[in-house]
Computed example of a mutant assay.
Amino acid sequence: MKEAGELVWLHVDETCVVVDKPAGLLSVPGRGEDKQDCAAARVQARYPDALIVHRLDQPTSGLLLFARGAEMQRAFSYEFMQRRVHKRYVAVVEGLLPLDGNWHEIELPLIADWPNRPKQKIDHAAGKPALTRWRALSHEGQRTRVALEPVTGRSHQLRVHLMAIGHPIAGDALYGNESGAERLLLHACELTVGALTVESPVPF
């Protein structure tokens, strides 16, 4: 069991660095002196050419990809833009979803909820397209463990989509309630880009 706040180094080569980000650590620096410790700063302290390609929300744990240099950052960013990067998450959500073994889709457009930043919201008129695939894995009391695959990569997409179908992620103080969970129960467990696949065990 890794210590809280520890960054785990999972893959390093000449093109990229993949780390396992703990819950509670920012992906990139925030505003203010107290928000400078982040995954990007820690990775760049060891690999100064490392540039962030995508982000995880602060309360989300799991796999984070950094490119080695600007050229690789452009290449990886293009792969994300073309939706050729496969990402899988595991979450525990409130309520019971059907254990039918099938993948289901949530397709609801998202936009920033400006008066309530950093929240996002569903907006059928002005929102950007957003698509999430989900499959129920098991029931855990009155909760369901689910596999999630974001086809698009909107801010807070998984959290808003699951809230929208009535099953907020456990521990989500922003979109649901903390409901006794010590943290947001959302973890980025698998990342595939090109020939590289990296996996991270789910810590909950």
Rank of each mutant, 00 (worst) to 15 (best):
128 K>G: 07
37 D>A: 10
196 L>Y: 08
79 E>W: 10
105 E>C: 07
175 Y>D: 09
54 H>A: 02
25 L>S: 05
194 G>C: 04
35 K>I: 01
118 P>R: 14
96 L>K: 12
72 M>D: 05
14 E>Q: 06
198 V>K: 02
179 S>K: 07
157 Q>F: 11
13 D>S: 11
101 G>I: 15
157 Q>K: 07
150 P>A: 13
170 A>L: 15
187 H>A: 01
191 L>N: 01
69 G>I: 10
39 A>H: 06
168 P>G: 10
40 A>G: 00
120 Q>W: 15
123 D>N: 14
48 P>D: 14
203 P>W: 06
149 E>K: 12
10 L>A: 05
41 A>N: 12
76 F>R: 01
153 G>R: 03
41 A>F: 04
29 P>S: 05
92 V>E: 14
15 T>I: 02
64 L>Y: 00
30 G>L: 11
197 T>A: 05
83 R>A: 02
204 F>Y: 14
168 P>F: 03
65 L>Q: 00
124 H>F: 12
108 L>F: 03
109 P>K: 15
103 W>D: 14
202 V>M: 06
61 S>V: 04
196 L>C: 10
84 R>T: 08
160 V>L: 10
120 Q>M: 15
98 P>R: 09
9 W>A: 05
116 N>Y: 13
150 P>K: 12
6 E>T: 10
98 P>C: 06
55 R>M: 04
18 V>C: 05
155 S>E: 09
113 D>P: 08
50 A>L: 11
150 P>S: 13
147 A>S: 06
88 R>W: 00
145 R>S: 03
197 T>G: 03
157 Q>Y: 07
118 P>L: 14
199 E>F: 08
191 L>Q: 01
38 C>G: 06
158 L>K: 00
57 D>I: 00
1 M>Y: 07
42 R>L: 15
130 A>L: 08
191 L>P: 01
112 A>C: 12
34 D>I: 04
